[in-house]
Amino acid sequence: MVQGRLASLTLLLVLTGVLWFSAEAFKKTGVLRIRRIPGLDAIDELVGRVTEMGRPMAFVLGGTALEAQGFASMRILDYVASQSAKYDARLFVVAPLPEMEPMCQEIMRAAYLREGKVEEYNPSDVLYMPGDGSKAGVLGLYQREKVAGAMLFGNYYYESMLFAEAANLAGASQIGGTANYHQLPFFVASCDYTLISEEIFAAGTYLSKEPTEVGGLTAGEVGKALAVVLMIIGSLLATFGNDSISTLLTK
């Protein structure tokens, strides 16, 4: 065992266990208490808006590497694609990474298939825009296609301000979400709704209410509760010169 990683391993095993057991519990009871997340409620509203206006919507994924936020964002895309297919709203998807593009294509195709409209699916609506090219590309897309809605989710960096404010100036309503704390102020300033940090990970549960999603959300909440308890006890003990919690965490 590598020195200092016992606490991490224990937490990982605890979270995996909680995920499993709470998923099983939800299968039996079907009871889920989850607070309202206005940004996710607004997705249907936004799809309705673009449908009424007869203008398209853009779903722009952020990312310099495919990681957890990317997967969570694709979970939201899955729902948005279904809603768009259902209400015949045109949806452009911008993938910033080469490996994301085929994934987005599959998600879109499956959504149209579920709604029985696979022949209406246009693969050209999924755009791969890499690196710095994506900045000009997305701004051009907003202007050329006159988008009425923009959804910006994932691992965003400075482009958050660019994409959100440009959408605002193009008259589009926006929903943004990222776990990158440094970009949250920009989304809050420019978007109509913002999903803050773990809210994008909760989106899957909120939108699908599927058992393993519920398990994942519960595990995250248990982890947070543990962190809060450890912080309070650790701070109190440290105040009185006892560093047993920090020693425990570095074992």
């Binding site: 937490l11 990982l12 979270l15 995996t16 995920l19 990681e67 957890a68 936020q69 997967f71 969570a72 776990a179 704390y181 949250l184 803050i196 940090s197 773990e198 994008i200 990970f201 909760a202 393993t212 994942g216 959300l217 595990a219 995250g220 982890g223 947070k224 962190a227």
Partner: peptide, 15 residues
């Protein structure tokens, strides 16, 4: 925010 987000990432990675 980092603790909340990191736990979300850990759970997503487990999934």
């Amino acid at each position: 925010i980092t603790i909340g987000g990191s736990l979300g990432m850990v759970v997503m990675s487990i999934r």
